[in-house]
Amino acid sequence: MDVFMKGLSKAKEGVVAAAEKTKQGVAEAAGKTKEGVLYVGSKTKEGVVHGVATVAEKTKEQVTNVGGAVVTGVTAVAQKTVEGAGSIAAATGFVKKDQLGKNEEGAPQEGILEDMPVDPDNEAYEMPSEEGYQDYEPEA
């Protein structure tokens, strides 16, 4: 019985440690998101679009440190934060509304985080759909 109880105690310690790591990862992701939003706020009209992409990228980098179902929630929060940063930029006159959601080359930025393969159960990952990809044929 002692062996059984000791095993359960060790398992509990492992769960607590994993929860603490997840909590730490979420806190880091939130900190990076805040950094990115402050970065966007300090940019001029020309830099705002690039700044919004930076927020998304920093958040995406930190999301990889967070495991399990938390990833889905962090990704949703990050996307809403990026959308909010863009709205703030438009409201303050840093950028025109028609410039939001495009990178410096004018290509749409939507789907940055949505296409990231995420499995809350950590069982399997699927690649994003290939609808947006084109076949590449090298020139002879």
Rank of each mutant, 00 (worst) to 15 (best):
V40M: 13
V52T: 02
K34G: 03
G67Y: 04
Y133E: 05
M5C: 04
S42K: 11
K45G: 05
F94Q: 14
L113Q: 07
A140N: 07
V48Q: 00
V82H: 05
K23C: 10
Q134M: 10
N65K: 10
V49L: 09
Q79V: 08
D121L: 08
P138F: 04
N65T: 14
A90P: 02
A29I: 14
D135Y: 12
K60E: 02
G36P: 01
G31M: 12
G86H: 15
N65S: 09
F4V: 02
V82Y: 11
E83L: 07
A78D: 00
S42V: 11
G132D: 11
A69R: 03
E110I: 05
V77Y: 03
V82W: 11
F94T: 13
N122P: 03
G14R: 14
Y133I: 01
M5I: 02
G7V: 04
P117E: 02
T33C: 02
N65F: 07
Q109L: 15
D98I: 07
S42E: 14
Y39C: 07
E131W: 15
Q109P: 15
T75G: 07
V77E: 02
K97L: 15
V40P: 00
A85Y: 14
V26S: 01
A140R: 10
G93M: 02
V77R: 05
P117L: 03
A89Q: 05
V77P: 01
A78Y: 03
T54L: 15
K6V: 07
I112N: 05
D135L: 10
E83Y: 11
A124C: 07
G111M: 02
S87T: 11
D119G: 15
E20M: 10
S129D: 06
Q62Y: 10
K96V: 08
G101Y: 03
Y39D: 01
M5T: 01
E126M: 05
V52M: 14
K60M: 14
E131M: 02
E57K: 08
E83C: 06
S129P: 11
A17P: 00
E83R: 08
K10C: 02
G14A: 06
E123M: 05
K102G: 03
T81Q: 01
Q134K: 15
E131N: 07
G67S: 07
M5S: 05
M1Y: 00
T59M: 01
E83P: 10
A56E: 01
P120K: 09
E114W: 14
T22I: 15
E114Q: 15
E57C: 05
G68W: 14
Y136M: 09
A76I: 10
V66S: 01
T72L: 04
D98H: 12
K32M: 12
M127Q: 08
V77N: 01
S9K: 11
T54G: 05
E114M: 02
T44K: 01
A140Y: 04
Q62R: 04
Q62K: 04
V66L: 09
V3G: 05
N122C: 03
A19G: 02
A27F: 07
G86F: 15
D98T: 11
V82K: 08
Q79F: 08
L113K: 14
K6M: 03
T92S: 08
I88P: 02
E114C: 12
Q109A: 01
Q99S: 08
K10M: 04
E139N: 13
Y133A: 13
D115H: 13
G36D: 03
A69N: 09
K34P: 00
K60P: 01
K80R: 07
E123V: 08
N122K: 15
V52I: 07
T81P: 02
V74Y: 11
K6N: 05
G73C: 15
E126T: 07
A140I: 07
T59E: 00
L8M: 06
L8A: 02
A89T: 09
I88W: 09
D121T: 10
G51S: 04
G47D: 12
A76S: 12
N65V: 10
G73D: 02
G14Q: 06
A78T: 15
K97T: 03
S9E: 11
S129R: 04
G51H: 12
G41E: 01
E61Y: 04
V3Y: 03
G132Q: 08
T64E: 07
A56T: 12
S42L: 12
G73R: 09
D98G: 08
G47C: 09
G93H: 08
E61K: 15
E137Y: 06
K12H: 05
D2F: 12
M5K: 06
A76T: 12
D135M: 09
Q109V: 07
Y125A: 05
T44Q: 00
L8T: 00
G51L: 10
G25E: 14
L100E: 06
V26D: 00
A11V: 08
S9Q: 12
G93P: 09
K10D: 03
M116V: 01
P138E: 04
V55F: 09
E13F: 07
V63E: 00
V37I: 05
A91S: 05
M127I: 08
E114N: 12
I112R: 06
A78Q: 04
T72P: 01
V16P: 00
T64L: 14
E137I: 03
V55D: 00
K32Y: 10
V40A: 13
K102V: 08
Y39F: 13
P138W: 10
T75E: 02
S9C: 15
K43T: 04
P117M: 09
L113F: 09
F4A: 01
V118K: 08
G86C: 12
A11M: 12
V95P: 07
Q62E: 03
K43S: 02
M127K: 13
A30L: 10
K23L: 02
V52P: 02
Y133W: 09
E137N: 07
V48E: 00
K23Y: 05
K23I: 03
Q24A: 01
E57F: 09
A78E: 01
S9H: 12
Y136S: 06
A91K: 06
E105D: 13
D2A: 15
L100F: 01
E83N: 09
Y39E: 03
A19T: 09
A76G: 10
E35A: 14
T75A: 15
G25C: 12
E114T: 07
D135P: 04
E139W: 10
A89L: 11
Q134H: 02
Q79E: 02
E139G: 06
K80Y: 07
N103L: 11
M127P: 04
Y125S: 05
K45S: 04
V82C: 07
